[in-house]
């Protein structure tokens, strides 16, 4: 078996089955984005004709694209799998945490509170996520089985050695493991896999016309009720698509006429900007922004 997609797929399925075999209460963190949709597809291959040995869990910031939320609900229903949704809004109200402020009020860092609460509520001992090592340099260091302490923290300097096809998921009560089955996939691998497997995606990944505000970094942010516009803003109508599906408040669109998965692959082969660089406002804060968020319990 030498085809690279077959090898990546086999590795991911192996990791999913190890998670099911080693943990009592795993969960699959589902965002409605392409990476977690691929995880669901891989879970079908890993566990059918049985049911998934875990629920799909979505931490809803309240700032999601409606297309992604509709897609999420429809997918869970079609598959007949359990979907658990927990809202950042509820956490903020209940705990009196101030909401995100500013022109583009990103609840991205605030998700961590809700995620940790949800882990506690259901006593999840393993959370499967679609993060990839090619996304960001702190992620490039993370293991497939990433152990978090009882506060959800990641200690990058004290990671367990992880060898061969052997995954040590032993933990103490209160600890949990974040599992990243597609760690070794790149953005282009994900798209090639979507093409090969004919996987359905939310419509916002493909070209559509959208009214956007042009930010100071020349990024295109869709106008929506969560961001505050003023008379200095440049409002434009463009043909755009999304490279990642995050919050409407912190995910930028890219100009694109790509109408099919083939078009997107062609576009990505010719692009010179990284996925997070093109679309995420939150990683621009500092060189170690992701490392710091992960240490604090982020996905």
């Amino acid at each position: 078996m030498s085809n690279y997609l077959d090898r990546l797929e086999a590795e991911a399925i192996h990791v999913l089955r190890e998670t099911a075999g080693q943990f009592e209460r795993p969960a699959l963190l589902f965002s409605g984005g392409k990476d977690s949709i691929c995880l669901v597809h891989l879970a079908l291959k890993a566990f059918r004709p049985g049911k998934f040995p875990f629920p799909l869990v979505h931490i809803d910031t309240g700032h999601n694209f409606p297309e992604a939320i509709q897609f999420r609900d429809r997918l869970a229903e079609q598959l007949g799998e359990q979907l658990i949704v927990r809202h950042v809004e509820d956490t903020l109200k209940r705990r009196g945490i101030p909401d995100a402020k500013g022109k583009f009020p990103s609840r991205n860092p605030l998700q961590t509170h809700t995620l940790l609460e949800t882990i506690e509520e259901f006593r999840f001992d393993a959370c499967i996520g679609g993060a990839r090592r090619d996304e960001e340099k702190a992620r490039a260091k993370e293991r497939f089985f990433s152990v978090r302490d009882e506060f959800g923290q990641w200690d990058p300097k004290l990671q367990r050695p992880e060898l061969w096809n052997i995954y040590n998921g032993k933990i103490h009560p209160g600890e949990n493991v974040r599992v990243f089955p597609i760690s070794n996939w790149t953005e282009l691998d994900v798209w090639n896999y979507i093409l090969r497997e004919n996987i359905e995606l939310p419509s916002i990944y493909f070209t559509h016309e959208r009214t956007c505000v042009l930010t100071e970094h020349e990024q295109l942010m869709a106008t929506n009720v969560f961001i505050s516009l003023d008379e200095h803003d440049t409002i434009v109508n463009r043909l755009v698509r999304y490279r990642t599906v995050g919050d409407m408040t912190c995910t930028a669109a890219v100009e694109s006429k790509a109408n099919s998965v083939e078009d997107i692959i062609e576009e990505l082969k010719n692009t010179t900007v990284s996925e997070r660089g093109a679309t995420r406002m939150d990683d621009r804060i500092s060189e170690a922004a992701m490392e710091d968020r992960k240490k604090g319990g982020y996905f």
């Binding site: 690279y4 090592r133 340099k137 490039a140 260091k141 790149t186 691998d189 490392e291």
Partner: peptide, 28 residues
């Protein structure tokens, strides 16, 4: 070098995985 400590000390502490491909092959 991805971790803050690595950049500060100018050494590699833990494994970092990098990906690239050419027309012929994909590499990890």
């Amino acid at each position: 070098d991805g971790l803050r400590a690595e950049r500060e000390q100018g050494i590699t502490i833990d494994v970092a995985y990098k990906y690239f491909s050419t027309d012929r092959r994909k590499f990890i």
